[in-house]
Computed example of a mutant assay.
Amino acid sequence: MSQLPDLPRLPLGARVQDPFLVLEVEQRESARGPFWTLTLGNATGRLPSAPVWSEQQEMVAGLTKGTVVQVIGEVTQFGGKRQLRLSSVRPIPRGAVEWDQLLPSIGDPAPWWARLDEWRARIAKPRLRAVLDLFYEDPAFRTRYGACPGSTNGHHATLGGLLKHTVEIVLIGHAMARAARADADLVTAGALLHDIGKLEAYRWEGVFETTEAGALLGHVALGHRMLVERLATTDPRPCTEREQWMLEHFILSHHGKLEFGAAVPPMFVEAEILHYADDASAKTDSMNLALADPDNFADGAPVSARGVWQLDRRKVWRGDSDWGAGD
């Protein structure tokens, strides 16, 4: 595989002549007339194009989200943000480029699965383990779960991002459970079930997108339905009615507040732990992404020039110190 251009870190003046995936195509109006912008991506990240004006419109005519293109261009800057000034854009067949070059990925999912499966094997409660096995012993489910992104454009937005996000939640949740004297097995189960609806809410065969069902219902409602339907079609019933309510509650409450997408707020300690562990995993990933993006920092400044939407529009700081370690 040829060396991929590192889109988040390409310096001004860098020339590219590489394949990219079209992530967005946008048309706008200005005093000069209509113009088009593309958002181009590969496995390293994404970069917007400079405006393509009407006299160059044929260069982007017919391009849609998900098109694979061969691009020639140069990195420039406008308004403190890098952009790619396009010289040539040519559609190429999807099969001409390996998808692992076009989409960000966690890489080999096997180490992440090993962690999850080890925790699942330690669960001592047979009925709790039996419910999890309905999903996590299903090869088709595992294939999709191991590829699904954690979001379409935000935290863990990579192939396999949902799997990585889940492992992080269990790690954080176990630490919180020890401090709160909570049931770690139950926290594990909540982590493994809370986002299963994303398998129906997202599409990742190409660009990361929300499905029609995801747009209409959302991953919380879809995940709740997946759990209820799987338990209803399992005979004998693997858990009691009250135990099923607890597992449903994990899915329905994990966003914490109704205004953030929860159907109900968390009502027992393990559900509270799941909510905060989920939020901590998402926010720290978003923070690391924001700190690594040079476009957030003007002229090498330590404080970002603007707030980051994934972090509730907070600014971020990338200063550091070795605290005397190098003395």
Score class of each variant (00 low, 15 high):
A213G: 07
R314H: 10
G146I: 07
P11I: 13
W112H: 06
D6A: 04
N296A: 04
L116R: 13
E58V: 14
H165D: 02
D133S: 15
A262E: 05
S151V: 05
W119Y: 08
R237Y: 01
G41E: 06
Q101E: 13
L116P: 09
A110M: 10
V75K: 14
A325Y: 04
A140P: 00
A201Y: 12
V228E: 06
R225I: 12
R203G: 12
Y145D: 05
I72D: 15
S304M: 05
T76I: 03
I273C: 07
R318A: 01
R82I: 08
V264Y: 13
Q17G: 08
Q27L: 03
Q3P: 02
P302H: 08
E241A: 15
A271Q: 00
T234L: 15
W113M: 14
F20N: 01
W323L: 15
V220T: 13
R225N: 13
V207Y: 02
N288E: 14
D100C: 11
G146K: 04
R314E: 06
D327P: 13
W323C: 15
I169E: 09
G214I: 04
D285Y: 00
S88Q: 15
F135Q: 08
S49Q: 11
R181M: 06
A140V: 06
C239T: 03
R115W: 00
D138E: 09
Q56A: 13
A215H: 00
S286V: 02
L7Y: 15
A262D: 09
A201C: 13
A31H: 03
L84P: 15
T76M: 07
D133T: 06
A182G: 01
R203N: 05
Q57P: 00
Q310I: 01
K125G: 01
V52S: 09
R46A: 13
A14G: 03
P34H: 04
L162E: 13
M176V: 09
S105M: 09
A43P: 02
K81I: 14
T166A: 05
P126Q: 06
A180L: 14
